[in-house]
Nucleic acid binder design. Structure first.
Length: 281
DNA sequence: CGACTCTCCTGGGTGC
DNA sequence: TGCACCCAGGAGAGTC
């Protein structure tokens, strides 16, 4: 599942392999992939043609490619299973190929591949450099505009559980189920801890944990990156080697040896150490 | 507005 | 071997 670190690896790949190139052809193979482009697939195709990709940007789990001409960007979200692949033209089509872009230099093409189709691409206006459909989400914790004190104040005003708040992209963007569990483990917080009981030092510790697990993941994701492969779909190797709790039910906590437990929460899984992360009363 | 649930989707795994 | 079912989960839409 691509969260902030995986999406950042993709962004770097796009900046390296796609920026500066002119889009000359586009093909939408599955309408659901452009469902948020309300003017439709034909409009999407017509409007990306002839545009030069200026750069590759990211906020949280969203990626966008500002395009030449009007203040517009090609906005993408990978959902659960989305990949952006840079491949040689004519290479065999992937089973779940949804959108294909070709470039004027005749070189590699950009493919959006997505098995579960939770991801999407669209063309959207840029307002102050940010695509309008994501104007409502908060900066991610690696942006200069992310304000730790503001986050702490907003978190303490909430009347909810800390994990639910971490997953709320309007409070902090880029955190998904996996890194939420990992950061909570590192900060020794149970996912059900009421946000209004968190002290400011504890929130600072939690933010540091979020940054630490994501930075570690980014370093590992970056190392598996090679020339024509812009995909990182949560399969960078970080999953296998470095996760402390996610997906590790019944395996020993690396701090205390207690078996990790899995609980259902928000229709998904939460993994935690019952000893290091005491459930609130 | 805040808190919360529902819904979208596919394919691998599992139990009978 | 077939089939029903469960599970993974981001985030917008909808409810209260």
């Amino acid at each position: 599942m691509p969260e902030l670190p995986e999406v950042e690896v993709v962004r770097r790949g796009l900046a390296q392999w796609v920026a500066g190139r002119e889009i000359v052809s586009a093909e939408v193979l599955h309408p659901r992939a452009v469902r948020r482009h309300l003017a439709g697939a034909d409009d999407f195709v017509a409007r990306v043609k002839g545009r030069i990709v200026i750069s590759a940007e990211r906020r949280g789990k969203y990626l966008w490619l500002p395009l030449s001409g009007a203040e517009e960007a090609l906005l993408a979200h990978l959902g659960m299973s989305g990949q952006l692949l840079v491949v040689e033209p004519g290479s065999p089509p992937d089973k779940h190929l949804r959108v294909r872009l070709g470039f004027g230099d005749g070189g590699s093409e950009l493919r959006f591949v997505d098995q579960r189709t939770f991801g999407h691409v669209m063309l959207s206006p840029l307002l102050d450099g940010v695509p309008s459909p994501i104007a409502h989400i908060a900066p991610d914790p690696f942006e200069a505009s992310f304000d730790d004190d503001r986050f702490a104040a907003a978190l303490r005003r909430r009347r909810t559980e800390v994990k639910r708040a971490l997953l709320d992209q309007s409070l902090i963007s880029g955190v998904g189920n996996i890194y939420a569990d990992e950061a909570l483990w590192l900060a020794r917080l149970h996912w059900a801890r009421p946000t209004q009981t968190l002290t400011r030092p504890k929130i600072a510790e939690l933010l540091a944990a979020v940054r630490e697990v994501m930075t570690a993941a980014l370093h590992q994701g970056g190392t598996s990156f090679d020339s024509l492969y812009v995909n990182v779909n949560g399969e960078s190797g970080y999953f296998e080697r470095s996760l402390e709790v996610y997906g590790r039910r019944d395996r020993p906590c690396s701090r205390c040896g207690t078996p990790i437990m899995r609980e259902a929460f928000m229709n998904r899984s939460s993994f935690s150490c019952p000893r290091c992360q005491r459930r609130p009363r």
